[in-house]
């Protein structure tokens, strides 16, 4: 079903009632599971993700001993069969999932202080319970929260979001507004990119785009994305601080 963008030109409101620069409702929890070293639950609109972190620990799998001087970040993503509109089981060898795993692992390999844990692995497991757009961005944010819960030192939060571009035809160049934080139906129709930054908007860690877009629109999309990352960083920081306060209060009383 094509995306009905006729309302947007009239009222500048998207299908779910947001303006171009508004995020969806974002919600997160830390320490949701006792058995793991670190865990988090993250919601971006209807995209819901559970993340657990185990480690740093001795490498279990693989025969040879790991001789590297850095900890290795292993990411496993499981997309539940009931997460989408239609029930679909995805195998672990799905190319799209593998690419996401690689993107997340390389982003955190550079942000975590892996040199403190030689010969060890940090295993991140992500369970996607419900997907409605911005999957990679939500995964990155959930990982950040779980890694903070696990107490693994890192230089800064990685906060991520998606941006899209409204009209997908060249003749409507003047109405091409950049859109922040796409939902599932927008993502299927519009060109979009995922941007993840650390330290507010100083350093871009992840920038992925799989669709085509006119070169002239890219700059606006990225700048809107960087601004969105800054907002998300603030939200993540709020979640971490609220959790910290709760932990401290339970220790005191």
């Amino acid at each position: 079903m094509p995306l009905d963008s006729s309302i947007y030109t009239l009222s500048a409101l998207r299908l779910d009632g947001r303006r171009w620069n508004e995020l969806r409702r974002i919600n997160g929890q830390i320490s949701t599971q006792q058995a793991a070293d670190g865990s988090s639950y993250f919601e971006m609109g209807n995209t819901k993700i559970i993340c657990t972190v185990n480690g740093p620990q001795e490498q279990k799998r693989g025969g040879g001993r790991d001789q590297s001087n850095e900890a290795k970040v292993e990411v496993e993503i499981g997309i539940a069969g009931f997460s989408g509109v239609d029930r679909k089981r995805r195998t672990r060898n799905d190319k799209r999932i593998q690419e996401m795993q690689y993107t997340i692992s390389s982003a955190f390999q550079n942000t975590l202080f892996t040199h403190l844990y030689p010969h060890s692995t940090i295993a991140i497991t992500l369970h996607v319970l419900s997907q409605d757009g911005s999957l990679l961005a939500a995964c990155l944010n959930a990982c950040t929260l779980a890694l903070i819960d696990a107490g693994i030192p890192m230089s800064d939060y990685i906060a991520a979001c998606t941006t899209g571009s409204m009209a997908s035809y060249a003749d409507k160049e003047d109405e091409a507004d950049p859109l922040l934080d796409l939902n599932g139906s927008e993502e299927q129709e519009l060109p979009f990119l995922t941007v993840g930054t650390s330290g507010g908007e100083d350093k871009v860690n992840v920038l992925i785009m799989e669709t085509r877009v006119q070169m002239a629109r890219l700059e606006a999309m990225i700048s809107v994305g960087l601004d969105g990352c800054k907002q998300i960083r603030g939200i993540l920081d709020g979640i971490v601080r609220a959790h910290g306060k709760k932990v401290l209060q339970s220790k005191v009383s």
């Binding site: 599971q33 006792q34 058995a35 209807n46 069969g81 009931f82 029930r87 319970l129 409605d132």
Partner: peptide
């Protein structure tokens, strides 16, 4: 879960946790 016909989550005290989603087609 919004996308499943029925869903539940149970956490045991030892930290084990399960989520079940039921979908009908």
């Amino acid at each position: 879960l919004p996308s499943a016909n029925g869903s539940a989550r149970i956490c045991f005290a030892d930290g084990t946790e399960a989520i079940v989603g039921v979908k009908a087609e």
